[in-house]
């Protein structure tokens, strides 16, 4: 009994790490840039395919791809914000209008990116094998790549947290999240900060994509599934909170391993039940103010 509970907990934690990284990007993009980016999963998919190509075609170690794919996605996100979302921001009179319109623009982006991916890579399932050797953790057996994923997820999360709390740029970002007008008055180039934030969101999606491709098969239409998981976690943890994303990620990870132990086909139903309950009880999330 105890070992079963331990098994479930460990599996949940391993899953939770990657879930957290999936959610952090979305949380940042909404929390600061006010874009509810429903194409977030598409960026994750791009990160995953980038890693897959580098590994299968050039034999590049996925952990090296981590620092190769994500920065490219950062640039993509940065320029998408600079062009599309800034135009939208300029023409929207109030932030609520920008929020709803930017979400709809993100739907458009989702279709475009997914279509390109299908054209280039087809719609069948891809995958590769890396660090697949079994590891024994407290009696439970997992592929080594799960452990690597969790470690990197925690590392990326910690580095990003320090970046936001310690550096000048991080402070400017947090100031803009709280009060864009005041931040602008204090000399923060608000447009630049918003574009950077959207870029950072894409960067996180890139990391998540690489880490996902380590453990799971990938396909061009995988994006939506991860967007939804990110939305659920962000709702759990609180929109805009990094710590919240990690808490939400681990909660969802544990729930997923618990429910799949009891009745695997109910996993997704359980996600939505929790998601809907959370929205009804505390819509701003665990860390929400």
């Amino acid at each position: 009994m105890i070992t079963t509970i331990l098994d479930i907990l460990i599996a949940g934690l391993l899953m939770g790490g990657i879930y957290a990284i999936i959610a952090v990007g979305l949380s940042l993009q909404y929390g600061v840039a006010r874009v509810f980016n429903v194409s977030h999963g598409e960026f994750i998919m791009l990160g995953a395919f980038g890693t897959w190509i580098l590994f299968t075609a050039f034999g590049i170690n996925p952990l090296i791809s981590l620092v190769m794919c994500a920065p490219v996605l950062f640039l993509l996100g940065f320029y998408i914000h600079k062009t599309i979302f800034r135009t939208l921001l300029r023409s929207s009179k109030i932030i609520e209008i920008f929020e709803s319109k930017s979400m709809l623009v993100a739907f458009g982006l989702m279709y475009i990116i997914q279509n390109i991916a299908i054209l280039v890579w087809g719609s069948d399932i891809k995958g590769y094998s890396y660090l697949n050797s079994p590891v024994n953790i407290a009696g439970a057996v997992f592929p080594a790549n799960r452990l690597v994923t969790l470690l990197f997820a925690l590392l990326i999360g910690a580095v990003f947290y320090l970046f936001l709390s310690r550096t000048r740029m991080g402070k400017a970002i947090r100031a803009s999240a709280q009060d864009p007008a005041a931040a602008g008055l204090m000399g923060v180039n608000i447009n630049q900060v918003l574009a950077l934030c959207f870029g950072f969101g894409a960067l996180m999606a890139g990391f998540a994509g690489t880490l996902l491709s380590l453990c799971f098969p990938i396909k061009a239409t995988m994006g939506m599934e991860y967007t939804i998981i990110a939305i659920i976690i962000v709702t759990l943890g609180g929109l805009g909170s990094i710590v919240g994303s990690f808490i939400g990620g681990f909660i969802l990870g544990i729930i997923s391993s618990l429910v799949s132990y009891i009745e695997p086909s109910l996993t997704l139903v359980a996600y939505y039940v929790i998601f809907i309950l959370m929205l009804l009880i505390k819509p701003k999330g665990i860390m929400g103010k």
Binding site: F36, E99, S100, M103, I231, L266, V269, I276, L279, P283
Partner: peptide, 24 residues
């Protein structure tokens, strides 16, 4: 009683919930 983006997210989740429930 949910406002703005939260209402939208909810309706979005609702669809998925019903779909997976019917599937189950």
């Amino acid at each position: 009683r949910l406002k703005g983006i939260y209402f939208t997210i909810f309706t979005f989740g609702l669809l998925e919930l019903i779909r997976h429930l019917v599937l189950f």
